[in-house]
Simulated scan of single mutants.
Amino acid sequence: MDWTAAVDAYCERIGPAFWAEPVNALTNAAFLVAAFWALRQWQRQPRRDGAALALILVVALVGIGSFLFHTLATRWAGLADVVPIAVFIHLYFFFAMRRVLALRPWPSAALTLGFFIAGLALGPQLGRLLGSSGGYAPAALAIFAVALVARWRAPALAVPLAGVGVLFLISLAFRTGDMLVCPSFPTGTHFVWHCLNAAVLYLLIRILMRASRPPAAMGA
């Protein structure tokens, strides 16, 4: 495979130039802003949260990788885009099993592995319906599944998680609709995915930091 081959997958791109996707490229700053504000919240915690800090760093990498893809538009840049997102999804799933659902490490790791395998199996099927957005659908389903179980395991977190799940579905709709609106809106809608998804990642980290507090503090 030629990792330097050009990739043209978004409505806004009309040529090979570095700034052929200016809106898509610049809106990746939303991920850096999300990482910055999450870091500010992390610094205010009474104790340092290693899991949250790791996720904050990954969010920053998501912004950098996506910027590379929407400027260089090559296969290797595409890998730099999707790998940090995949790392965030599966790291967060593991930490959610541990903190939100209060499972032990080995069951949490086993469920995370199962989630990863299920995503690989479902991705191609969902891709027929949602195109390249199909790979993100299992993450949306996972948010709602964790929110459902959290009603019994961590009730204070159930509604916030479900709300983030709804926001993620909205952001996914804008990602999926990018090429569909292209004839009438040449900029496309992928940039809205960046902005909303940055908010999703920020809110997920905030929820995880809440999950590290005692129940009384979470209720407050």
Rank of each mutant, 00 (worst) to 15 (best):
F191L: 10
L91M: 11
S171N: 06
L196C: 03
W3I: 11
R40N: 05
L122G: 00
A150T: 03
W193D: 00
P214W: 11
P105K: 08
G114C: 13
G135K: 03
A154C: 11
W193Y: 08
A198T: 08
V7R: 13
P186F: 06
T71L: 12
Q41Y: 02
A25F: 04
G114H: 13
A9N: 12
A29D: 02
V58T: 02
I170L: 15
A220N: 10
D2K: 15
F94Y: 04
S171M: 12
I143P: 00
M209W: 07
V146F: 04
G78E: 01
L196I: 08
C195L: 15
L167I: 14
A17I: 02
A73M: 06
D2H: 10
A118Q: 12
L167M: 14
R99G: 00
L113D: 01
F191P: 00
G131W: 10
R47V: 09
R48V: 05
R206C: 10
R206N: 04
L204Y: 02
C182Y: 05
G114M: 15
S171T: 11
P160W: 09
P215Q: 14
E12N: 08
L201T: 01
L169I: 14
H90G: 01
A20V: 04
W19M: 14
L26K: 07
F174M: 11
Y136V: 02
L169Y: 08
L101V: 04
L161M: 10
G135M: 15
Y10K: 02
R40I: 12
A118M: 15
S212A: 14
W193K: 03
T187C: 07
R128M: 12
A220I: 13
N28V: 06
G131P: 03
R213Q: 14
A217T: 13
L120P: 00
H190W: 04
P22A: 10
I205M: 09
A30W: 04
L130T: 03
H190P: 00
M218K: 14
W193N: 01
C195A: 14
L129Y: 04
L57I: 10
A52M: 05
T187G: 03
C195V: 15
L26N: 09
R48M: 07
P138Y: 09
D2P: 05
D2W: 12
L39V: 02
L68V: 08
R153Y: 03
G219P: 02
M179W: 05
A145M: 12
R175E: 05
S212Q: 12
C182H: 02
A5N: 11
T74H: 09
S132D: 11
R213T: 07
A216W: 11
L53W: 11
R128D: 05
P107E: 13
T27H: 03
Q125F: 11
W106E: 05
F69Y: 04
A162W: 06
Y10N: 01
W152E: 10
V82Q: 08
A217V: 15
L129F: 07
R98Y: 02
A199E: 04
F31E: 01
M1S: 13
G219D: 15
V23C: 09
P183C: 07
A156F: 07
V200W: 06
A102L: 14
R175W: 09
L141G: 07
R206S: 08
I207P: 00
N197K: 13
L39F: 07
F67Q: 05
G163V: 13
D178R: 05
M209R: 12
A140W: 13
S108Y: 03
V7Y: 04
A140T: 09
R48T: 05
V58I: 14
A199D: 04
Q43Y: 08
Y136T: 01
